[in-house]
Design a protein around this nucleic acid. Structure first.
Lengths: 185, 185
DNA sequence: TTGAACTGAGAACGATCGTTCTCTAGAGTA
DNA sequence: TACTCTAGAGAACGATCGTTCTCAGTTCAA
């Protein structure tokens, strides 16, 4: 098996397991079993669990933000693009296996004991906030609105995760629309 | 030492340690050391770590919601009382040792593996949402607003926790005020 | 064909941690 | 004083888990 393929399989397995059950409750041996990659090879690719965790969060960040942007790009009108973020959240919340935001969960689990995990959570959230900022700027709206919309989105992620319900996305979208309307002046 | 006193000391120590470092990274022996209560006694009071975790979350729920209500009660005007929730968050976020919402963190850490923890997170968040609902009803505002304000508050807690900054409370307060103004009609 | 290098399976190691057990010292009582 | 009961200190136990090691099988070059 190609080394790149093995790496991919490990990251796939780790992604599913870490996200679905939490990082600390998944052992390296379980990742070996799920990926079909031997422990020896696994440790050759990722010399320690920390590094696999880091790679998991990094890859998920790329995928997650890529999917969001891909969805938003389908809309042309600037305000529609902002609301599309919440439509995307709604779609995501309804997916089978949804269990909240991976970075919020990882931060809750390891943020206090791992600077790397805490930094990755901050980086991901900063990137999300920056993306919303760009959408808000494109719509010619005040930057302060981006912070407010970010909070709505984060609140929706947390609440949808804890209650296993997609509804918070609709509530957040409605609030976002109200804030947009108010900002219109 | 009185049994009630020992229980209190254990809960104090567990509260500080669990909140500050996460539940799984704190061992029973460390709680013994911090509380000064022997392992034997500790296990007589809480037969398993799960039960101590449960007691920790339960007690914190009482204290946390009590403090919030106490702060809000100082205001008389219904809309002021709603905004006071965000002022209270701002005060909380600025406290030394603040590390986000204990239930969001506990859910991220153990929600997937412990039904009890997941249920306690849901119960706490439901109670918070219900409290906001009562404030919104007292102000004669539509119930839907309570959901939206809840999301702002949750988003502020998450963001303040990850970035160690009290500012999200101010942003959430501003958004809340805008939503209130828009709802005024 | 032979031997060297690599690989996978899984045993082994060492640390951590939840939980229980042992032993000892002291308090209370006849 | 002698006996019993309790409680604390901390050793011990058993499970889990990250990481490394062993060994047997396989590939591949000469």
């Amino acid at each position: 098996m190609d080394s790149a393929v093995a790496r991919e399989r490990v990251l796939d397995a780790a992604g599913t397991l870490f996200y679905g059950r939490g990082i600390q409750s998944v052992g390296m041996d379980e990742i070996r079993g799920a990926s079909g990659v031997s422990l020896k090879r696994l440790y050759a690719l990722f010399p320690a669990k920390d590094q696999l965790v880091e790679a998991y969060l990094e890859r998920r960040d790329t995928l997650w933000r890529g999917r969001l942007a891909e969805y938003v790009e389908q809309r042309a009108e600037p305000r529609e693009r902002i609301l599309a973020v919440f439509d995307h959240l709604h779609r995501w919340f309804g997916e089978p296996g949804f269990r909240g935001c991976a970075w919020i969960n990882a931060y809750g689990e390891l943020g206090a004991s791992s600077d790397r995990v805490a930094a990755q959570a901050r980086a991901h959230k900063s990137a999300f906030r920056a993306y919303l900022g760009s959408l808000v700027a494109d719509a010619g709206l005040p930057e302060r609105l981006a912070d407010q919309l970010t909070l709505l989105a984060e609140g929706a992620m947390v609440t949808a995760g804890i209650f296993h319900s997609p509804e918070p996305a609709l509530q957040a979208r409605e609030a976002a629309a109200a804030l947009l309307a108010a900002a219109r002046g």
